[in-house]
Design a protein around this nucleic acid. Sequence first.
DNA 1: GTTCGTGCAAACAATTTGCATAAGT
DNA 2: ACTTATGCAAATTGTTTGCACGAAC
Lengths: 160, 160
Amino acid sequence: MAKFDEEHIAAKLHELEVACHRRRLPVTVQRRVIYETLLRRSDHPTADQLYADVRRRLPGISRTTVYRVLETLVELGLAMRIPNRQAVVRYDPNTEQHHHVICVLCDRVEDLEGVPLAERPIREQAEVTGFEVLDCTMVVRGVCPDCRDDYRRRTLANSS
Amino acid sequence: MAKFDEEHIAAKLHELEVACHRRRLPVTVQRRVIYETLLRRSDHPTADQLYADVRRRLPGISRTTVYRVLETLVELGLAMRIPNRQAVVRYDPNTEQHHHVICVLCDRVEDLEGVPLAERPIREQAEVTGFEVLDCTMVVRGVCPDCRDDYRRRTLANSS
DNA sequence: GTTCGTGCAAACAATTTGCATAAGT
DNA sequence: ACTTATGCAAATTGTTTGCACGAAC
């Protein structure tokens, strides 16, 4: 799995180069390191979490750059923003269609793979509104295992 | 339709009173006016848009109160937050299950009613991750009619 | 009368912008 | 050489908090 990961990361970094060349954007160290850092995390980090992480390899990097590079990655189709309930953007390097569960208490995000979505009816309905559909994602709100006890406690307190 | 709307709004305002009593929360003017204003809009307003609107009826109201009351409405189950790509929260007084299309350019939100979602497989998959599922919504990203030309123009420019 | 809400001002956090400098091509 | 990105500091935006006063039960 480790070897596969390295191969996977190398392949993805190559994709970054190709995408940059196609758009005539320079392949900077920052872009490479930020993308690689994002690829190595599976926890859908926020820009600030990535900043803290990237800083260890590039101590001089600025927070601004992290924000800017992440948006560039989104434009290049190499990352996606996850819509979440808080006013913090989270990023995911997996741009294949998949869904997310978000904990309503701690805001943790988890992937839901292998749920083929019946997109057809949604696309059709969306086109009734005049929208041109780009993609659809399921956002599942829930309570993660770590917060379950806390959640039960609160719910009981409210219904009293 | 107008008469129905008024009846509908009266019924919903009554729901607010019931919900407040049940939780032993005072039914304040602000709560009533903010909820009614939200009910009369179908554009999924942000807290700030509602503030501007509510101000006309309650000139002395503070922005803080609008934010606080909206969160109370969510807790009471009378409104829901819509996850959107920007760092701005939007509110919807329709708490029935329904989905949303969001314009990637202007961030406008439209309802998608009548798309029965096959929730079963999603819930099952979510429970594999250990999450207790509360609800699931489809988030469709797309381009609204007003932004379509702009979008086509940008896309062509990028692929050149 | 007691509890909870409201308004204000100030704090905060996440994100964006303008501009001079430094890299990448 | 030329273009585009980067780093810094400052500005902006959306939202939250502490506290004194006022309204609802």
